[in-house]
Design a binder for these strands. Structure first.
Ligand SMILES: [Mn+2]
Ligand SMILES: [Mn+2]
Ligand SMILES: [Zn+2]
Ligand SMILES: [Zn+2]
Lengths: 138, 138
DNA sequence: AAATTAAACGCAACATAGTTGCGTTTGTTT
DNA sequence: AAACAAACGCAACTATGTTGCGTTTAATTT
């Protein structure tokens, strides 16, 4: 299936115009083999106005097309939402793994299910960020 | 036990000088009932030079006296390390809970133990950030 | 196919976070 | 009391992220 058409649908479904910039940004994010750092987006999309890049990212974040995979001190990482997400709800059941060697961030499904309970608290969301050494860097 | 003396020991143990600024910053962090946001530190420590505040925080972070409890978009939250931590190792087994209503961040021990496994990966650290509504805001 | 309109874009300007260099001050050791 | 390295304050700088506004363009209507 053609990516451009798929992205166009994704955008229109959220009442966002399918502009060339948005399609290009989505293509870059989707073609990256892991979560893409902001610094990489800057490099690959030099012809984007700074503000446009931020506004486009925010539009995609707000509408549940992409999500932040990691917010470390060095960089902010973005990845496509695999499940169906909306403005109201980002339902991700996966964790984010960051390799301390190559700094690659990826969305991974864990083998075991994670259950977290805190007394007297209504839990809405659980973000798990795992760091260590990835397969390639061991 | 006198806090000032305790903090002086904490600092000297890490080869950090026990200066009035460091003692004051530690007192502010320790006396706060939850993880303290950076914005709050700014307010409470207006007489600190901006750079000094950053450098002091970084010194305490590096040496394992305090830790970041949450790095959200709105603010960065700091809390005392309860376990014995060092430059090399922050060993926290607790999770960080952020209330979406009052924006309070706290370090909480979960009732159940959390086990995360990812194939072909050497896990070094697991950071869990839970958000929802706290007891007071329900 | 042309007109319409709200959204998206580019530019300038701004605000805040965080860092670096350097001269001065201060905590700790002798 | 003296010496020294660490800590501090100030100026300057870079990076991140946002806002306002005039112009352009995607989607809709005629
Ligand atoms: Mn993810
Ligand atoms: Mn904590
Ligand atoms: Zn790696
Ligand atoms: Zn609350």
């Amino acid at each position: 299936m053609d990516l451009e058409i798929k992205f166009t649908d994704l955008l229109r479904d959220r009442n966002l115009k399918a502009t060339p910039k948005r399609l290009e940004l989505l293509t870059v994010i989707a073609n990256y083999n892991s979560a893409i750092p902001y610094s990489e987006l800057q490099k690959k999309l030099k012809h984007f106005d700074r503000v446009t890049l931020y506004r486009t990212l925010n539009a995609l974040l707000d509408s549940g097309i992409i999500h932040k995979a990691s917010v470390s001190t060095d960089d902010t990482y973005y990845a496509m939402c695999k499940e169906y997400c909306t403005t109201e709800c980002h339902n991700h059941k996966h964790v984010h793994f960051k390799c301390v060697e190559c700094l690659e961030v990826s969305c991974v499904d864990t083998t075991n299910t994670i259950q977290i309970q805190i007394p007297n608290v209504k839990i809405q969301q659980v973000d798990i960020e795992v760091s260590g050494v990835c397969e390639k860097c061991i």
